[in-house]
C-alpha cells in the first residue's frame, strides 16, 4: 500500500474521529452524572428509546417485505426496477429536514392525506409522538431495506426451491427458509435502523415539533440546550454517542458486518 494512501487514510480517520474526541474532551465530566440524570434529559431519553424501538418494529414489519420485493424485482422490467430502487434510495440521500417538510405536506393539517384525516376524523398528526415515529420510520427504513436486500441477494436462493419441493407453501418458504436465511441481514438492518431513528433530528423537529415528553427526543433536546446550556447539550450528545457505541458493542460478534472482532 503506497505511503501517500496511508497518509490520506489517516486523515480520513481523523475527520471521522476528531469531532468525537473533542466531544469527549470538552464534556463537563464533573457535572455529567447530574446533567444526564436531570428530569428533562431522562424524559427525552425515555421518549427517544420508546419511539426508536417502535420505529424499528414498524421498519421491520414494512421493510422486510419491501426488501424481498426489491430482491425479486430482478425479473421486473428495468424502468420499474429502477423506480423501485430510487424510491428507497431518495429518503437516504435527502436532508432529513426536507423529509420533514414532505411529511408535513402529506400528513400535516393541510396536507394531502392529513387534511382529509383532520376534516373527516378530527385526527391531526403533527405535534404527536406518532409523528416522531413516522419521521423516524421515513429516515431509517432505507437502512433496513438495503441491509435485508443485500443479505437476500448474497444468499443462495435455490434453497427456497428445495423447500418448495418439500411441500412448503410460498408463505412457509418465506417464514421458515427465507427469513432465517437473511436473519443476520435483518438483525444488522434493525440495529442500523434503531440507531438512525435514535439520532433522527431534522425530520422530527420539522414535522413533529418539540414538546417535552411528547415530541422532544434527545437530539431535539440537545439542539435546544445548545441555546441556553451548552454543557447540557454536550452531555446529551455524549449520551447519544454512548447509546450508539453500546448498541454496536452489544451486537459486535453477532450480526453487525464490519464490527466483528
Amino acid at each position: 500500500m503506497p505511503a501517500a494512501l496511508v497518509v490520506v487514510a489517516i486523515l480520513a480517520l481523523a475527520v471521522l474521529m476528531l469531532p468525537l474526541v473533542a466531544l469527549v474532551v470538552r464534556a463537563p465530566w464533573a457535572d455529567l452524572p447530574a446533567l444526564v440524570t436531570s428530569a428533562p434529559v431522562l424524559e427525552a431519553l425515555r421518549l427517544s428509546l420508546v419511539t426508536a424501538t417502535i420505529a424499528t418494529v414498524v421498519c421491520l414489519a414494512l421493510g422486510v417485505p419491501l426488501a424481498v420485493l426489491l430482491a425479486h424485482s430482478a425479473d421486473a422490467p428495468a424502468p420499474l426496477r429502477r423506480l423501485l430502487r430510487a424510491a428507497v434510495t431518495v429518503p437516504l440521500l435527502l436532508p432529513p429536514v426536507v423529509g420533514g417538510i414532505a411529511l408535513l405536506l402529506l400528513l400535516g393539517r393541510r396536507g394531502l392525506i392529513g387534511g382529509w384525516l383532520a376534516e373527516t376524523w378530527g385526527v391531526t398528526i403533527p405535534f404527536t409522538t406518532g409523528a416522531v415515529v413516522i419521521a423516524q420510520v421515513f429516515v431509517s427504513m432505507p437502512f433496513l431495506v438495503f441491509a435485508v436486500e443485500g443479505a437476500l441477494s448474497g444468499a443462495d436462493r435455490r434453497v427456497e426451491q428445495a423447500a418448495a419441493t418439500l411441500g412448503a407453501s410460498r408463505w412457509q418458504v418465506f417464514r421458515h427458509v427465507t427469513l432465517p436465511l437473511v436473519a443476520p441481514g435483518v438483525a444488522a438492518g434493525a440495529v442500523l435502523c434503531f440507531t438512525r431513528a435514535l439520532g433522527e433530528f431534522g425530520a422530527t423537529i420539522t414535522f413533529a415539533g418539540s414538546l417535552p415528553g411528547v415530541t422532544r427526543t434527545l437530539p431535539v433536546a440537545s439542539y435546544l440546550a445548545l441555546q441556553s446550556d451548552p454543557d447540557e447539550a454536550i452531555a446529551i450528545a455524549l449520551l447519544l454517542l454512548a447509546v450508539a457505541v453500546a448498541v454496536l458493542l452489544l451486537l459486535r460478534d453477532r450480526w453487525v458486518p464490519g464490527v466483528r472482532a
Binding site: S210, T215, Q227
Partner: peptide, 8 residues
C-alpha cells in the same frame, strides 16, 4: 398556556 410545540 397549553402549547403543542416549543420551538427553538
Amino acid at each position: 398556556a397549553a402549547p403543542d410545540t416549543l420551538e427553538q
